[in-house]
């Protein structure tokens, strides 16, 4: 399933009703930063975890509080567990970050369109993550590294607000020591204890090694970061049709019914969250969107 990238799941594929959550028990909780945790969930009652595509998301429900869309951040080749990385950014997500091992959450999904990783086969791959943009890209990286021989050079650029805001740091350290990919980490500002780079992710692009016309790029992070990065890659010669980004909007129903996440002609929950830059570029310049 994980290799069949970029096909949208239909509403209700994982559950009988698209709005009925399935119970999951929090098995482990990893504190990533002061406001972000990663939760490892196991289905209650011995059910299996529905297969998902890297880049897809679930609606995660804290009973009595509400539900929010959260990207899946775990390994698509681990069918026994579901991993979500959540940042406290509002009432519901704050409640989710405070969920403890043993407690139960509701999950429905997976939803949306995943990263089209197969398009990157035999190409150079550039992955650019900003802040909490890394978790939605992590399943892609797991999948890519599981079949590393299918891809040419792999460049990862990861930016965060400060060294304290870097998430999945254990993975980052592992990737750093691999000989078959290059990783650059940069932060917006730092103290003297930080020996790495400081500056925007776009400032790291000139140091990345890739052949622009034969490169596929995957971007996830704050919208302005993705816009600047896509522009920089395009200027270097990466085809706009080969740049993919994951959008975030106010997703409520997750199945293309309610319209809360409408972005121009698209519903982000149904038609995204992964979009091709060439298809959505013009929407970045529409201020009302």
């Amino acid at each position: 399933m994980a290799s069949e990238t970029h096909s949208a799941t239909s509403a209700g594929s994982a559950t009988e009703s698209p709005f009925t959550p399935e119970p999951y028990v929090v098995e482990r909780r990893v504190v990533e930063t002061a406001d972000t945790v990663t939760m490892v969930l196991k289905p209650a009652g011995g059910r299996g975890v529905p297969a998902f595509l890297p880049g897809q998301f679930n609606m995660v429900y804290r009973f009595g509080v509400g539900e929010v869309p959260i990207s899946i951040s775990g390994d698509p080749n681990r069918p026994d567990e579901l991993v979500h990385t959540v940042r406290s950014a509002g009432k519901i997500s704050d409640a989710l970050t405070k969920t403890l091992p043993g407690e139960t959450l509701g999950v429905r999904g997976p939803y949306g369109v995943g990263w089209p990783l197969q398009r990157a086969e035999h190409q150079d791959v550039v992955i650019v993550a900003g802040g909490l943009g890394l978790p939605p890209l992590r399943p892609l990286l797991y999948e890519l590294l599981a079949h590393r021989d299918r891809y040419e050079r792999v460049e990862i650029i990861y930016g965060a607000r400060s060294p304290k805001d870097l998430v999945h740091y254990e993975d980052v350290q592992k990737w750093r020591t691999r000989g078959d990919l290059r990783l650059q980490v940069t932060v917006d500002a730092a103290g003297r204890e930080w020996y790495g780079d400081v500056g925007l992710v776009t400032a790291r692009i000139p140091d990345a090694r890739f052949d622009p016309p034969r490169t596929v790029a995957f971007l996830c992070g704050p919208e302005i970061m993705m816009r600047l990065t896509a522009q920089a890659l395009s200027t270097l010669g990466v085809p706009e049709a080969s740049i993919w980004l994951s959008m975030e909007r106010n997703m409520k129903c997750a199945v293309g019914l309610c319209g809360h996440c409408q972005w121009g002609p698209a519903f982000v929950c149904r038609d995204g969250p992964v979009f091709r830059y060439a298809d959505v570029k013009r929407m970045f310049s529409v201020r009302e969107l």
Partner: peptide
């Protein structure tokens, strides 16, 4: 220009919102 852009985006604190 690049360094000015860097400073401007830092002011926006894009990862902090």
């Amino acid at each position: 220009g690049d360094r000015l852009e860097n400073a401007r985006v830092q002011i926006l604190d894009i990862h902090g919102v």
